[in-house]
Structures are given as C-alpha cells and as structure tokens.
C-alpha cells in the first residue's frame, strides 16, 4: 500500500519492483510453513524438469555424431568438467558431479527467472546462502580430512616475508570466513538487482497511457531500457552461475592443495 501512494504521486504509475520476489503459497492463502507448496516449489521443480530435459532427454541418443540437443548436454558436461579439472587438478574430478549439480541448478534457475512472470529462486539469499554454506562447510571439512591440521597452512603464506606472515594470516582467516557471505550475496544480489531494475523500467513503460506528452518520450526509452537490461541479464545469468561454480572449484583446490 505504501508503493501505491508513491505511485499515485506519479499520476497512476504503479511501482512494485520487489513484488516479484515474494514467496507465496500456490494453493490457498495460508501462512508459508516449511512444507508449504509455494512458487519456490514450482520454479525449483521446473528447473529440475529443464535439467532433466537437457541432460537426460537431450543426451538420450548417445549417437556417435551428436544431435543438436546432445551437443548441448555434452557442451555443458565438457565445460564444467574441464573447469573442475583445470582449477582443482586431477584429484578434484571426483567432486565434479556436485559442482555440476550446483552449476546446472543455478544456470537453469537464473534463465527460468528471466521468463516474464517467473519467480527467480536464485535471487533469494536463503537459497544462495544455503548453497554457499554447504560449499564452505564441505570444503572446510574436506580440507581437514584430507590434510589434517596442515590444512591450516592455507592461512600461512610461506612465500611472504616472515614479519608479514602473522598479519597476512589474520587477513586470510577473515577472508576465509567471509567467503560464504560473498559467495552467496554475489549471486543473489546480481539476480535481484537486474530483475528489480527491469521492473522499475516496466513501471515507467505505460506512461504514454497516462500522459501522452511525456509518455511519447519515456515509454519508448523505458522499453528500450528493458530490452537492454534484459540482454545484460541473460549474460549475467550465465556469468553468475559460472562464477559460483568456478569459485567453488577454487575453494575446493584450497582444500585439496592447501600449501601455496
């Protein structure tokens, strides 16, 4: 209701840039319990279906000369596999399915969120934080299991002068614990900001219906802006999924090879 009063100041324009992020029950209007079937459920379920279509149905042929859909699946597979191998080394390849899961979920959820009227699950800090914390905990536990207490040498930069090492160690420890925060907020923030900006421009778009004079200038401009931001968001959707996956690989490499 606050937005509507704000909108009336603009002669009838309605601004609801954040409404698209609301978690609402799909059936009925009760409170959102942990098990309630909400739009989160719907769009996450759709992302499962899309991933299934791309990676299972698309690669069904197993043809020697791949079909188009099979090429997409193989391209995604090869892209992430090569990234894991390049960043973490040969011994990191066993964790490839986990990273592939994260990447596929994020990239598909990001692109599904770009559909009009869609709900972007990855724009929620709750979702990205869970993934980032899972990565953080898994990598930390893995580091101690694989290396014992020598995993702590990841904070002790032996290439730096001895005097600087304690200070650097402090900075490294802080940055280590900030990792999950930046890891999750980067993704959620990017997704949220882009979608909110599109919504703001979308609110300006029908201005021509209210006041023809300014509207003739503002409406085409805002439609152009929506198009431009949308194109940018397509790029961001992929890049953020890639960044999330490659940072996971980088953290994994630290856990497997802490001595640098």
């Amino acid at each position: 209701m606050a937005t509507e009063t704000h909108g009336e100041a603009e002669a009838g324009l309605v601004f609801h840039p954040m409404d698209q992020f609301q978690v609402t029950p799909l059936f009925g209007a009760g409170p959102v319990e942990w098990f309630t079937i909400t739009n989160v459920t719907l769009w996450m379920g759709l992302s499962i279906l899309v991933i299934f279509a791309i990676l299972v149905l698309g690669a069904r042929g197993r043809a020697l000369v791949p079909t188009r859909s099979q090429s997409i699946a193989e391209l995604a597979y090869g892209f992430i596999y090569k990234m894991v191998e390049d960043v973490t080394g040969k011994d990191g390849v066993v964790y490839f399915p986990y990273i592939m899961t994260l990447f596929m979920f994020i990239v598909v959820a990001n692109f599904l969120g770009l559909l009009p009227m869609a709900f972007t699950t990855t724009s929620h800090i709750a979702v990205t934080a869970v993934m980032a914390m899972a990565v953080f905990l898994a990598v930390t536990i893995l580091g101690f299991v694989k290396n014992g207490f020598s995993f702590l040498s990841v904070f002790w930069i032996s290439s730096a002068p001895l005097v600087l090492r304690p200070i650097l160690a402090l900075i490294e420890v802080i940055s280590y614990f900030v990792r999950p925060v930046s890891h999750s907020i980067r993704l959620a923030g990017n997704m949220m900001a882009g979608h909110a900006v599109i919504k703001v421009f979308a609110a300006f778009a029908p201005l021509v219906l209210i006041s023809t004079g300014i509207g003739l200038v503002v409406t085409p401009l805002s439609i152009l802006a929506i198009t431009a931001i949308y194109a940018l968001e397509v790029l961001v959707s992929f890049i953020q999924a890639y960044v999330f996956a490659i940072l996971t690989c980088v953290y994994l490499r630290d856990a497997l090879h802490p001595h640098h």
């Binding site: 319990e33 942990w34 989160v40 949220m192």
Partner: peptide, 16 residues
C-alpha cells in the same frame, strides 16, 4: 525486501 522475510526461509531451504 522479500529476501529478508525470514518467515519464508525454512520453506525455501526445504525445497532447495
């Protein structure tokens, strides 16, 4: 910000 509406967190985490 619906993102900071903690009442929906358990729901999202569960489905995630």
């Amino acid at each position: 910000m619906p993102q900071l509406d903690f009442s929906t967190f358990s729901n999202q985490i569960f489905w995630l």
